[in-house]
Amino acid sequence: MFELRLVQGSLLKRVIDAIKDLVNDANFDCSSTGFSLQAMDSSHVALVALLLRSEGFEHFRCDRTFSMGMSIANMAKMLKCASNDDIITIKADDGTDTVTFMFESPSQDKISDIEMKLMDIDSDHLGIPDAEYEAIVRMPSTEFGSICTSLSTIGDTVTIAVSKQGVTFSTKGDIGSGNITCRQNSSTEKPEEATIIEMKEPVVLTFALKYITTFTKATSLSSQVTISLSSDMPVVVEYKIAEMGHIRYYLAPKIEE
């Protein structure tokens, strides 16, 4: 038996919104550690890893480790039936091919029971080694989102260059080119507005903007984003989910042919 209860139901809605444009179907892994997912986009260029730790839920019961295959698009449709302030309970029994979502209004005067069919999904987990990154940039997530949106109106790729001067995001397209530099700014009184750059080596990497822009759908989950870069390695774009875990996106870089 598996049952989890999340008082802040809007969080699950935001998590699914942050995944649904990247992944069609995915196995959610349930264990005593929590509720997690690892999935690639259909072209295997990007990977998303979600972790929601059991301690972050008001109630979490998972008798044995198992996976639930779900269509993310269908899950998003089901979660549309929940209001933002609803409490969400997810339940599944051993051996059944359905999952139940229960949405309770805070005053308990409305309860919705939604049943969704599970799917068999064949997917391998990839081993992601713990790596030391050459450069780590922490910046406001809204700032990163607006940079990606702005640059994607000009070009299809973004080159991220980290140096002592700061982090520069640049693009080039048919109509012209643009670059935006953010300098370290840790003196601000509000930590969520800080930009902090930890650099061991200067790094320059180029990525497809369409994927990076999809990652920024997670902006509402965290006020800060962490971008970790090493030469010839996938970038990691991480949004922490307060008291619960994180959503991490990995994107393979482009190389000169």
Binding site: M40, S43, H44, V45, A46, L47, D124, H125, L126, G127, I128, P129, T157, T206, A208, M233, P234, Y250, A252, P253, K254, I255, E256, E257
Partner: peptide
């Protein structure tokens, strides 16, 4: 011309 790499080039199946 730039070539897009895939994730499996970096991370192997567990």
């Amino acid at each position: 011309q730039q070539k897009q790499q895939v994730i499996s080039r970096f991370f192997a199946p567990k």
